[in-house]
Amino acid sequence: MNIDPTRNYFELFGLSESFDVDQEVLASKYRAFQSALHPDRFTGKSDQEQRISVQHTAFVNEAYSVLKNDLKRAHYLLGLQDAEFDADTETSRDAEFLMQQMESHERVAELDHAPDPGAALEQLACEFKQQQSELISRFSTEYARGDLDAAKDSALKLQFYERLTNQLREKQEKLDEQLL
């Protein structure tokens, strides 16, 4: 038997099932779990105890990685309400938003031709971050008032920012390499 794999992550960490999570409480509870369950605490013990410790720690690690990340937490909350989505096949149907995303992608692509790519990249990163945090607080409100359709749409939109941020990071790495 594992730590009960059906156990709700929020329940495990003693948190209420809401998007807004006190990261400090989360982190300190996480450390308490690790202190009690980590394989390093079972070095001299039987193979069996070590094996179970690995499984328990892995479960706590998984729960923590979901709860501390905004997008993963949003996805998980929707799943709890049976409103899960498939990130690979579903997308937002908001035409205006999609247009804006296409523009954003073009702006990322055009960074190479900017007179000062580094500064332009920073500017873009800043803009994206703000749009992203607006979406995050929108999701929080929508989910809290039980509007799952709207919340799901916001989560789908958040996915775009994950991709944009990754693209910016890749660009940044290329810029770093060019500086060598």
Partner: peptide, 17 residues
């Protein structure tokens, strides 16, 4: 002793919770 080990571990989890 499998059940015993598991019960102990689960009790640890409950206590942290």
């Amino acid at each position: 002793s499998e059940t015993f080990v598991e019960r102990r571990m689960n009790r640890s989890v409950r206590q942290v919770m």
